[in-house]
Design a protein around this nucleic acid. Structure first.
Lengths: 152, 152
DNA sequence: TTGCATTTGATTGTGTGCTATATAATTGTA
DNA sequence: TACAATTATATAGCACACAATCAAATGCAA
């Protein structure tokens, strides 16, 4: 927990001291690195995330995708519609439970994985950090996110 | 730099391995913690950031705010207009260089700082990490952002 | 002095991401 | 069996965030 004294000097906290702002900036900077590579695939970053989920799982419900990516249906429904419109996914109601919409890959969507498989290696050399540090940072971020998401 | 072998197995990279996704999730989780507190101030998170800049600097040009927050004028212009509409800031063209718009605080905007000064202390106990770790993470994130922003 | 290059901010269009709400379907309880 | 509670998804509205473009103003070189 942050030092009580530091917190007490709340009005002296500047933007540089804010972990939230550092996360916000780092997140956008990382997405900036992805953007040109994803532009070549015809995807935005959130669309790429959904494709990553489907390349890994082949088929998911909207709810499952939402749980994996921490996105709610208000965000996912229009996003999935756009991906369907582009032709990378298919959407269909589950016969056994018509509340559920199953999301699957089309042939185009599957084929895109070949090109997309180059993205991680293209990205990895741009982070400029050693693999150990990458793993350490990844681990701390996951822990932080889990904590923030469950302690509200 | 990430291990070449790991990068070569690019198609085996899952979302859990992605630093970018970890940043994206952590950023949104952190903003989720701010939201109820900022709702009480009548501010969104990006608006709060702008107010933080102005509480620190009193007056800034649009360009300066953009540089501090890494936001461009396409994002800032409507955001500042909304803050002006709420009555927390004023906008006015600089007489000596009419390309520049100076952003200042109104009395309401200044007064808001008193309430807002409680936010950091309210937030700090929710991160669930020791102060040393907070500082360490902050430092690594800044380094990463600087690296990503300058090596493209 | 003039004209081109550059800078600053604004606008438009698009894609999220969040909140609130609506609709339809399933589950659970009396 | 019937109805209330719950679940899943979709829609609407709003606030960004980015790209592209435009207009106005300033700076600089010839």
């Amino acid at each position: 927990m942050i030092d009580r004294e530091d917190a007490a000097r709340g009005s002296n906290v500047t933007i540089s001291d804010m972990l939230c702002f550092a996360l916000y900036s780092a997140s956008r900077a990382a997405m900036d690195v992805y953007r040109p590579l994803l532009d070549e695939l015809g995807l935005t970053y959130p669309q790429y995330l959904v494709m990553m989920v489907l390349w890994e799982h082949e088929t998911c419900s909207v709810k499952e995708i939402g749980q994996i990516l921490h996105l709610d249906s208000g965000t996912l429904s229009p996003l999935l519609k756009r991906l369907e419109g582009i032709g990378f996914i298919s959407r269909q109601r589950r016969a056994s439970d018509e509340r559920v919409v199953d999301i699957g890959l089309t042939e185009s969507g599957r084929a895109l994985q070949t090109q997309a498989s180059k993205v991680p290696e293209q990205i990895s050399c741009q982070y400029g950090i050693e693999f150990d540090e990458y793993r350490e940072l990844l681990s701390r971020l996951k822990k932080l996110t889990n904590h923030l998401s469950t302690n509200s």
